[in-house]
Design a protein around this nucleic acid. Structure first.
Lengths: 209, 209
DNA sequence: TAATTTTGTCTAACGGTGTTAAATTATTTA
DNA sequence: TAAATAATTTAACACCGTTAGACAAAATTA
């Protein structure tokens, strides 16, 4: 197609080159994610990424400081995705209890639908401590969930310690269930759903006491 | 001391050598654990182990098939240790609820006192699926905890699905809390204890309904 | 005791990893 | 077209897990 010709003649070459560089930056990330998806995160290597984008390995260092930076960027993408899913689920309901259930179910679904992301975010090198720095303010799972929790408890400040405690209770049981399930694939899906729902409604009930 | 002399004269050299080999087998494991404790599991390498036991790397392969086998052995040791702690905690009480609380507290304490083991067992490569094959029958956390749970629920068979579900609920929230806490060291210890106790008593209460 | 076999240990190497510096090629500028 | 700049590659370093072959020490046999 004539796109490249148009670009050559009608655009500043600086911008064109800048866009191309942006594209390879994206390509590197995509290639990395493909490899992780195909062969697992442990099989990811700089040379494999280079192969996939048809360059040699050192080129990648023009775009990312090192391998860790690539993993970090993927982690960031994962957290953004998760935040989106949770927000979306929340928006579908007005009832507080429904919101909470929907949000945690969205979290649960994300963990299995985007298993590679979830492992990168929580499993592998446990870099979920950077979550707060990475995400735009107001879009961490806490920010999304704390509102309904506080409201249900009759507490105005979502940063209140009591709210925080309940939030961690939710998070713990769900993250624990997921960790255990990602490993032990034996347990039936039905039982897991049951545990999950029981736990969520149990905690939710305990909010208004 | 004269031990070596005695050994030389009064013992078959075969046994002496066998004992020495047993010792280096242990030394390898100890060296590996020391490195993991000092520099983290990711820093563990065959050459470093060899350095520590004052041999060269290939020697290790006389004792362990490969690096994975060493990690596996350490994992096994970790599970044995955990099982011991939980059993010990259980034996200190007669009341069922007390037993459950003590066991899960022991689990919690183990995770932080033996952080390296716990990470090896659950964090790193998630090889807790081999738990059942590794441990002697009757000493998995499930085996230890299922009894009191079943009894409290008025169920005779500890393998009952309802017991299993409750067990996973306990395990999930505790494992989740631990995972989150090993990463986010920010949260105060007091709050964590509170969440843990709340969760345990909450689930325990739900057993007899 | 001397020769031979067995055992223990090490050296050297292979193919792989992340990463860097220098050389080379291609592109833009003058 | 010549010089300067940018893009890309080659080569190398230091590490990794692992294996094969050389070598020396010990045990066994003659």
């Amino acid at each position: 197609m004539g796109a490249s010709k148009d670009e050559k003649y009608h655009m500043g070459s600086k911008e064109r080159i800048h866009r191309l560089k942006e594209q390879t930056r994206v390509n590197i990330l995509d290639a990395a994610y493909d490899i992780v998806k195909d062969e697992g995160w442990q099989a990811l290597s700089m040379r494999k990424i280079a192969d996939k984008i048809e360059y040699t390995a050192p080129i990648i260092y023009e775009y990312y400081a090192n391998k860790e930076a690539i993993l970090l960027e993927l982690t960031k993408k994962g957290f953004m995705l998760l935040a989106g899913r949770m927000q979306e689920a929340k928006n579908k309901h007005t009832d507080l209890a429904d919101q909470l259930e929907a949000m945690w179910l969205a979290y649960w679904n994300f963990a299995f639908e985007e298993k590679e992301y979830y492992q990168l975010m929580f499993g592998v090198e446990m870099n979920c401590c950077i979550m707060d720095e990475i995400l735009p303010p107001g879009s961490t799972p806490y920010d999304i969930a704390a509102g309904p929790i506080a409201e249900m408890m009759g507490i105005s400040d979502p940063e209140d310690d009591r709210v925080c405690t309940k939030y961690y209770t939710y998070w713990s049981i769900i993250h624990g269930l997921i960790s255990i399930n990602i490993v032990r694939k034996g347990t039936s899906d039905e039982i897991n759903r049951q545990i999950l729902k029981d736990a969520i409604t149990g905690i939710t009930r305990s909010l208004k006491n």
